[in-house]
Amino acid sequence: MSAASTSPSSASLQPVPSRAGRGRRWSALTQAPWGYLVPAVAVLGALSIYPLIQLVRMALSDVGPTTVVGPWEFTGLTNLKDVWNDRLFRESFRATAYFTVVLLIIDLVIGYIAAAMLSSTSSRAASLTLRVMVFVWALPPLVSGSVWKFLLAGNGLVNEILGLVGIGPVDWLSSPDLALLSVSLVAAWASLPFSILIIHGGMLALPRDVLEAAQLDGAGFLKASRFVILPLMKPTLTVLTVLIILYAFRSFDFVYVMTLGGPGTETTTLPYLAYDTAFKTFEFGTAAAIAVISMLVIVVVSIPYVISVRREAAL
């Protein structure tokens, strides 16, 4: 069967008979629907694929401030090897992994509990809460990061409050033991509304009769969650987990605003290290190598997401 004969929209796209040229073009389009993909492919190619190719080229070349314009000398895997053996890269990788774990724990655990609470409250209260959360989520990280930087400063509000009960002051952003945790928690605070919205949406889609049956069987929150809700929400939570990991591997803005990668290099995550290498020391080839390795990690992590999306599409 041809697309022209089966597509319901093809009838409305029939050419005006008196205009033979236009007719042929329309006919070509309707018979080859891939033609409609041309704009999207062009945009994708220009804005995503071409920069990616350039990034990989840069990672495989010796590119510094004086060579960024003009031909790049191909150096093979030298940059990637140098980066892989670099102490700071390994520390940054560990910092990014830590950051990711904190985000996953906060966003999934607290996100689930908060979503469950919202689902059980009145629709009006839930609606109001969700609106506030959307506002938090929509705040630019540069703004919310700056606010948190002031709140967590030595003489900031958080320490002032702790001081009232005889605690502190705590070096939230300058202690090597706390700085990364502090930045991670702030990033988690910013991304939590998104997680709650996704999980809440998933809960609303659960079959009510199954939930009511579990309730009638005497299942409390924990049992219902373990045996009914979580299994049913596995696809949603899988996708959310992947998205959180992707978000964590792009963890630049809060680090930039709150600590500039410090103290020392304690909060230097991979994206911040790539930025620092490219735009402070102008070693573009090395920075591109850091970005490529980060990208490979993200690609590996994204595979379950892609599989999940395909499965859902096949249903």
Binding site: P263, G264, T265
Partner: peptide, 21 residues
């Protein structure tokens, strides 16, 4: 040509010592 990297490295050392890391 690497003066920025040199100063950056020294800044990181300073910050590390002040923070105790």
């Amino acid at each position: 040509e690497n003066t920025a990297a040199m100063q950056n490295a020294m800044g990181q050392a300073v910050s590390s010592v002040i923070s105790g890391s």
